[in-house]
Amino acid sequence: MLELRNVQVLYDRAIEAVRDVSLSVPDGAMVALLGSNGAGKSTILKAISGVLTQEDGEVVAGSVMFDGKPLGGSAPRDIVRRGIIQVPEGRALFAPLTVEENLLMGGFTRSRSAAKEGIERVYDLFPKVRERRHQIAGYLSGGEQQMVAIGRALMAEPKVLMLDEPSLGLAPQIIEDIFSAVVALNRDAGVTVLLVEQNAQLALEVTSRGYIIENGRIVLDGASEDLRRNADVQEFYLGMAKGERRSMRDVKHYKRRKRWLS
Rank of each mutant, 00 (worst) to 15 (best):
G190H: 08
R112F: 00
H253Y: 08
V51Q: 03
T207A: 11
V18L: 03
L34S: 06
V18A: 05
L140Y: 09
W260N: 03
G90C: 09
S111N: 05
V80E: 09
L23T: 12
E89Q: 14
V25Q: 04
R132M: 12
N37H: 04
R77E: 03
L227I: 13
A181D: 01
E89L: 06
S167N: 05
S42D: 00
A47W: 05
R249G: 15
A181R: 08
E144L: 09
L104P: 01
R5A: 09
G216F: 01
V219R: 11
R217V: 10
I79N: 05
G190A: 13
S247G: 11
T192W: 00
V196F: 04
R110P: 11
L23I: 11
A14W: 03
R152Y: 13
I79C: 03
L170C: 07
R133L: 07
L104T: 01
N37C: 04
D124A: 15
V251C: 02
S42Y: 01
T109E: 07
V182P: 00
T192H: 04
M1Y: 01
P88V: 09
V191N: 02
L194P: 05
A171Q: 13
A114T: 11
D124L: 05
N186M: 05
G151Y: 06
G210D: 08
G222Y: 12
Q234T: 11
V148L: 07
D20P: 13
H253D: 15
F179G: 07
N199F: 08
R81V: 11
L163D: 03
S247V: 12
L33M: 06
V191F: 00
R130S: 06
V196S: 01
E244Q: 11
S180D: 12
R110I: 09
P70A: 09
D27S: 15
L161K: 09
I48T: 05
V7C: 12
Y11A: 08
G216M: 04
G35Q: 01
L10H: 13
A200N: 04
F94W: 09
G107D: 03
L2V: 11
G62E: 08
A61C: 10
A92V: 00
R209Y: 15
G151K: 02
E55Q: 13
E55D: 15
E89Y: 02
D250R: 04
S24P: 00
S24I: 12
L194M: 08
